[in-house]
């Protein structure tokens, strides 16, 4: 079976196992609630991660287009980048799909229904591209976090001095024509 058909046919099974893998990286009491609660406002972590995974899965069925894949990856990584995970753990969910797809393929009774080595290599390539994107997004999120912190300190001090009339700043000049 070709890769696209295989991924489409097994979408719900693979997505379910993938979702469980991510959510099981949280403590068991938490994982139970993140899996159970369907209201996206009561459970933004569970629902956002699931939405992101659904989108990413569609990307994997086709080829990876960084433009369209990034927003889905961002949904998941933006959350995990500020939670209690090391960087590798935060983006590990991308790699685990290699295992999940292989296991799903091995489980097929009919050899016709399994994936060929070529298909697996092609799939691994897609995952690797996704992993590179994930790395970029993770770093962007952490950079943003520190930028926010620096800006907060800078604004606080500078604006305060300015408002208290303690600064003699050079006024903005109109460019001479």
């Amino acid at each position: 079976m070709d890769l696209e058909n295989f991924l489409t046919q097994h979408q719900s099974a693979i997505l379910k196992r993938w979702f469980n893998f991510i959510i099981d990286t949280y403590p068991p009491e938490t994982a139970k609630l993140f899996k159970r609660e369907k209201d996206p406002f009561a459970n933004p972590v569970g629902s956002t991660i699931f939405q992101g995974m659904q989108g990413l899965y569609q990307e994997l069925v086709r080829e990876i287009d960084p433009e369209t894949a990034s927003p889905f990856l961002d949904k998941i990584i933006r959350i995990r980048a500020i939670q209690d995970f090391s960087p590798s753990r935060a983006i590990a969910f991308v790699f685990v799909l290699k295992d999940l797809v292989r296991e799903q393929s091995r489980a097929a009774d009919d050899p016709e229904e399994t994936l060929s080595q070529d298909d697996l290599t092609s799939f691994d390539g897609r995952i690797d591209r996704l992993a590179m994107l994930a790395f970029d997004i993770y770093v962007q999120c952490r950079e943003k976090l520190y930028e926010l912190r620096v800006n907060e300190v800078k604004n606080r001090t500078h604006r305060l001095l300015q408002r208290a009339n303690l600064l003699a700043e050079i006024p903005d000049q109109e460019p001479s024509l």
Binding site: S86, S88, R89, A92, F95, V96, K98, D99
Partner: peptide
């Protein structure tokens, strides 16, 4: 190594001890 083995041994699983006996980590 399998994909999920690459990340084993980091902080994959929550602590084995109960909440009463798991001290906090100041990160």
């Amino acid at each position: 190594p399998k994909a999920n083995e690459l990340i084993a041994g980091t902080d994959h699983k929550p602590p084995k001890t109960g909440w009463m006996d798991t001290p906090v980590e100041f990160r």
